[in-house]
């Protein structure tokens, strides 16, 4: 019978439990994941099982790492996400967290667009570190993504998006995630894409400031291909600060909608 262990195909003469399988392969393990879910060592493997054997406290061999990073998601989902392409417009509070969340899922191709550098007032809500102050956000975020998953292909573009360049920068991606801070840029992206890329799938945000209940955050649809996440009223201002929990909550919803779209039809 054929099974996969840490990403490699193995032929077994007879069914074994996970303990015997690890002994047979001369591997030490104390975490056993079968088809994305942890199992007890007494579990008897079945044909086509996708098995991950993990030894806590030990850095896995390089050739197993990519498989192990996403083994809780299962092979189907992981393969689709690895071949997906998403562009993130704006790498602030929303964009940096959307990028990190997608990186953890192993989303294979991420383009980051932002013109700005990391500065101290970003740190309260954006996924950067103090030692990254002064660097381009795109470069710093690429570094953070690849610390989480080095197999993700990250393309960066240090540019201010406008009516002239936006279509060129975002065309060809399965999902466009609008993560700008200011209203003008949000509308610029929406209006251009509605006119010139009417079939692109876009996930934007509106109303993420303050520390109001997260249950007033909604997802509104515009036509078939556009989703907007937020409460649609709480605009950032001197009375209404942008803070990590709510901005991150909206970013997580944007990332989840991205995954939902890419995995349509997957069982």
């Amino acid at each position: 019978m054929k099974v996969s262990v840490n990403g490699n195909e193995i032929i077994l003469a007879k069914p074994l439990n996970l303990y015997d399988l690890a002994c047979f392969l001369n591997m030490e393990a104390d975490v056993f994941i079968v088809n994305s879910f942890p199992k007890d060592i007494s579990y008897i493997v079945k044909e086509n099982d996708n098995i991950s054997l993990i030894k806590k406290g030990v850095m896995p061999a390089k050739e197993h790492l990519e498989h192990l990073l996403c083994c809780r998601q299962g092979k189907n989902i992981t393969d689709i996400l690895k071949n997906s392409k998403v562009v993130i417009c704006g790498c602030g509070g929303l964009g940096s967290h959307v990028a990190i969340s997608l990186a953890r899922t192993g989303l294979g191709n991420i383009k980051l667009i932002d013109f700005d550098v990391v500065e101290p007032s970003n740190i309260n809500r954006q996924y950067y570190f103090i030692n990254q102050i002064g660097r381009y956000k795109t470069d710093a975020l690429k570094e953070n993504i690849n610390k989480i998953n080095p197999y993700i292909h990250v393309e960066t573009k240090n540019v201010m998006l406008d009516n002239e360049n936006i279509i060129n920068e975002v065309a060809g991606f399965q999902v466009i995630v609008e993560c700008f801070d200011n209203t003008k840029s949000k509308l610029m992206l929406m209006e251009n894409c509605i006119k010139k890329l009417p079939h692109s799938f876009i996930i934007g945000a509106s109303g993420v400031a303050g520390y109001f209940d997260t249950d007033i955050i909604k997802i509104k649809k515009l036509g078939k291909n556009i989703l907007i996440v937020g409460d649609f009223e709480n605009e950032a201002s001197e009375d209404l600060p942008l803070m990590a929990p709510r901005v991150t909550a909206c970013a997580s919803i944007q990332a989840n909608e991205t995954i939902k779209y890419l995995l349509q039809g997957v069982k």
């Binding site: 993560c179 509106s206 400031a209 649609f232 709480n234 605009e235 950032a236």
Partner: peptide, 10 residues
């Protein structure tokens, strides 16, 4: 009619 209002912050 559904109106989607865009406000700043991100």
């Amino acid at each position: 009619v559904e109106l989607v209002k865009f406000v700043g912050g991100g």
